[in-house]
Design a protein around this nucleic acid. Structure first.
Lengths: 170, 170
DNA sequence: TGTGATGGTTCAATGATCGAACCGAGGCTA
DNA sequence: TAGCCTCGGTTCGATCATTGAACCATCACA
């Protein structure tokens, strides 16, 4: 056995990792939450080889995590957007972000509950409203004092406060 | 750039994935939560090539997610256990388990808050006690009606109710 | 003293990822 | 309308990662 599956594993974690466990996949999903939708924007933001990006996007579409729709502004092009199933990956992304921010490198952004402005707790809850907001209800903004290093257009757009899942304009 | 890093990425998610994003790594961490501690038990439960298991265990120890300690019962052998930093990966594991259970294959086990017996919610909370328990406070048991497929000794032991992080005996 | 289990390492074959080059469809410009 | 650019890919050879099998040293036990 080689490759992306974990055949013998009788486990839903292994099942999840078969869908999103390959290199780059969760970073693509992260960008989709940030509102990235176009092939070129994913590529500019991730520095990923185009062949791999193409392969991952196809896989995510096959697995029902992204949908490919025609781009109304550009004939022949596509937009990639999270499905409901893909949006349910938010707890995975958020948990990785919290752990990475604490143990690997500081977070570049913070998340607030759009309804009240409270910063999300490490468990993904809004303690003010006592709920776990869905990602659509969150606003992402640059963390105060954070020194960005990336200069691509997507990174620049993402530094301004931005509602999650709302398409970005580059 | 090839391999396990995401050099250009100015992001804590990428940082987390550099530590736990390689193939097999999160399944090893999962098993560590279940109480697996010995090289052979990881191998029997995961069907992973020994060379890869060795590489991943060394990486996890280097990154401070596992500690390698001498096995008091067997001179010359080691035990691998989660550090505090490793235990903080529980929300990641749990989020993957919930998503995989819903969208990929049914969960084989359920988690209860040891203090009150309530099943954990999808957000990882105990709604009875209104807390997010740490993994040490959880008990894992086989889900009713679930038909297991694996026959290795580790899988068999893990079918009996079991407190998380408590070492298993094979 | 031999035998088996454990916890690895080494190796050749294969698969996955890489960067660079190429390419067709549309749009813009002159 | 000819030429050029951008976008969204595909193709290619080179390199890195993963695999299963074989090998090996240590320890326990008979």
């Amino acid at each position: 056995m080689l490759g992306k599956t974990y055949d013998g594993q009788d486990c839903s974690i292994a099942g999840a990792l078969e869908a999103v466990g390959e290199r780059w996949t969760l970073l693509i999903v992260r960008d989709a939450f940030y509102g990235v939708r176009r092939f070129n924007d994913f590529q500019a933001h991730l520095d990923i080889p185009k062949a791999v990006l193409s392969d991952r996007l196809n896989g995510l579409v096959e697995d029902g995590i992204l949908v490919r729709t025609p781009d109304p502004a550009h004939a022949g092009r596509h937009l990639y957007e999270l499905t409901d199933s893909g949006r349910e990956l938010w707890p995975v992304i958020h948990a990785l972000l919290v752990w990475g921010g604490k143990h690997r490198r500081p977070n570049s952004r913070v998340f607030r509950h759009g309804a009240c402005g409270t910063r999300l707790s490490d468990t993904g809850r809004c303690e003010t409203c006592d709920v776990t907001p869905r990602p659509e209800e969150l606003v992402s903004e640059r963390r105060r004092g954070y020194q960005p290093t990336r200069t691509d257009p997507v990174s620049q757009v993402l530094r301004t406060p931005h509602r999650m899942l709302e398409p970005i304009e580059t």
